[in-house]
Every structure is written in structure tokens, then in C-alpha cells.
């Protein structure tokens, strides 16, 4: 059985003109990128933003330098989203709460003992989503990559085109605002 081709190999083939290779790269990343765009620009424009990001990526694939394919793709996507937000000069029109419309991949954890606890968790998530939407676009992008998607700081800084120190600062300010907006019970342990 063939090993799955790396992102770099797919992009190299795409740069040589293979649309199939590029589309394999698209299918590999489209869920995560769609989620990023959805929280960046809101549900109304996230499909357009995602598609535009992939189109721009295809247009730019000849200039891609192997090494950080994911950061390269998200840099394009974050530029698309920021352009869109600047053009419209508005925040996401409405905030899609988990389970409200787009089907979430991850359901609420089953560890919740009963319906009351589930309802509390759903409320907490809704509040967090609202607080996320209230952040500035730059702060939101930092939180989405570093906290929701769990990227290392260096890779996220590359994707957002800022120095690591700037990213840390954005994350710190974003966390402060989120903590003020959402009450969380302190969590013990690692």
C-alpha cells in the first residue's frame, strides 16, 4: 500500500501543474480551514473565504517554498479573512454556536453526568464563541491557531506573519478579554 504523500510532495506536484495533487492537499485541510474561516468571518461568508483561500493558494503554489505547508496555507487564509473583514468593516454578522447549523465534528464529551451538566457546558461554549467573536480579528486568529488548533507558537507566528513576541502579546491580551467575558472554574492539574 502506498504511503500517503506529504503536503510538501503534493504542493511540489501542484506547482508542476497537477490539479489532482493540489486537490488532495485541499481535501486534507478543508475541514480545519473551514472552521478557521467560519470563526474568523462568520457563517455568512466562510464558504466564500475558504474557497477564495484555496484558489489563491493554487495561484501561488508555484512560489511555495517547502517546509511549512500548513502555515503557508493559513497565511493565505488569514489574509483572505482580514481583507474580507476590512472591506466590510464589520465583525462576523452573527455567531454560530456549536451545534447551531454547521454540524460539529466533536460532540459534547460524554463525561458529563447528566442533562444539567450538558446544558451548562453548552452555555459555556456559547459564551466562549460569543467572546471569541468579540475579539479583534488579529487576536481571534491567534487564539484559533494556538488554542483551538493547538499549533506551536513558532508555526502560528509564521502563519500570521508576525514575530513570536507579537503573537504572545496578542494571545495574552485575547486571554485576558476572554477571561473577563467568560467565567471559568479554575482547572487543577496538567
Amino acid at each position: 500500500m502506498n504511503e500517503p504523500r506529504s503536503d510538501d510532495a503534493l504542493l511540489a506536484a501542484a506547482a508542476a501543474g497537477s490539479l489532482d495533487a493540489f486537490n488532495a492537499f485541499v481535501l486534507r485541510h478543508q475541514d480545519a480551514l473551514y472552521g478557521f474561516c467560519a470563526r474568523m468571518v462568520g457563517p455568512d461568508r466562510c464558504e466564500d473565504a475558504t474557497q477564495e483561500a484555496f484558489v489563491r493558494a493554487w495561484r501561488a503554489v508555484g512560489r511555495y517554498r517547502p517546509g511549512f505547508p500548513r502555515a503557508w496555507l493559513y497565511r493565505i487564509a488569514s489574509n483572505v479573512c482580514l481583507d474580507l473583514l476590512r472591506r466590510e468593516r464589520r465583525r462576523p454578522a452573527s455567531l454560530r454556536i456549536a451545534g447551531d447549523g454547521d454540524a460539529p465534528i466533536a460532540e459534547l464529551p460524554d463525561s458529563a453526568p447528566g442533562p444539567e451538566s450538558r446544558a451548562e457546558q453548552a452555555q459555556l461554549r456559547a459564551a466562549l464563541e460569543r467572546a471569541l467573536a468579540e475579539l479583534t480579528a488579529e487576536h481571534r486568529a491567534a487564539v484559533l491557531l494556538c488554542d483551538l488548533q493547538g499549533w506551536p507558537l513558532a508555526e502560528a507566528a509564521g502563519a500570521l506573519g508576525v514575530p513570536e513576541g507579537t503573537l504572545k502579546s496578542r494571545l495574552h491580551r485575547a486571554h485576558e478579554r476572554l477571561r473577563r467575558s467568560v467565567h471559568l472554574e479554575p482547572l487543577r492539574g496538567a
Partner: peptide
């Protein structure tokens, strides 16, 4: 809490 926010599934294929 942030990490537990549900991921989104693309509603369609974005293949070009």
C-alpha cells in the same frame, strides 16, 4: 475550554 470548542466540518468539497 477553547480546545473543547467543537470543530467544524466543511459543508462541501472545496477541491478546485
Amino acid at each position: 475550554a477553547l480546545h473543547d470548542l467543537p470543530a467544524r466540518r466543511a459543508p462541501r468539497s472545496f477541491a478546485l
